[in-house]
């Protein structure tokens, strides 16, 4: 029996798995990095929102800094991180629960990138217009 093993089962170097190397891995790294970044943003964000309990002036002063161009670019980056994490998160869920998910995981990563570009193309011009005062 053992000598009848197909060649693929005796190959020394493992073929790419869902996670190791290639797209499956960098999308996983990007999912981690964006998840942590959003988490730290959220800690600060709840603190800045809590200023509404101190006084209207305190809140308005801090929020005013969110409207300068540098913070405006930071918000764009944050939204990009969320949009990627969210769409890729749905892809992970489909890989896990949809019977054909593992087969299409690669295709779905391209769908994620496509939807990402479309969403950002809708969001960025409008946001930058608000921040840089066009209209």
């Amino acid at each position: 029996m053992p000598d009848a093993l197909p060649a693929s089962a005796t190959r020394k170097v493992p073929a790419g798995t869902l996670y190791r190397g290639r797209e499956g891995m960098w999308s996983w790294v990007a999912h981690r990095v964006t998840g942590v970044a959003i988490f730290f943003f959220l800690l600060v964000h709840v603190l800045d929102t809590s200023l509404v309990r101190i006084s209207p002036e305190a809140y308005n002063d801090v929020i005013a800094t969110y409207k300068n161009p540098i913070m405006g670019l930071g918000e764009a980056g944050l939204v990009a991180a969320i949009v990627f994490h969210a769409y890729n998160g749905i892809r992970i869920i489909l890989v896990d629960f949809w019977s054909k998910g593992p087969k299409y995981q690669r295709v779905m990563l391209w769908v994620v990138m496509g939807l990402f570009v479309v969403t950002m193309a809708g969001f960025l011009p409008r946001h930058l217009m608000h921040v840089f005062g066009g209209e």
């Binding site: 509404v52 209207p56 809140y59 308005n60 929020i63 969110y66 409207k67 405006g72 918000e75 939204v79 969001f123 409008r126 946001h127 217009m129 608000h130 921040v131």
Partner: peptide, 12 residues
């Protein structure tokens, strides 16, 4: 961020 005046509208 998107509706109305976006970030610029946020205050107390």
């Amino acid at each position: 961020l998107v509706a109305g005046e976006g970030v610029t509208a946020i205050d107390f």
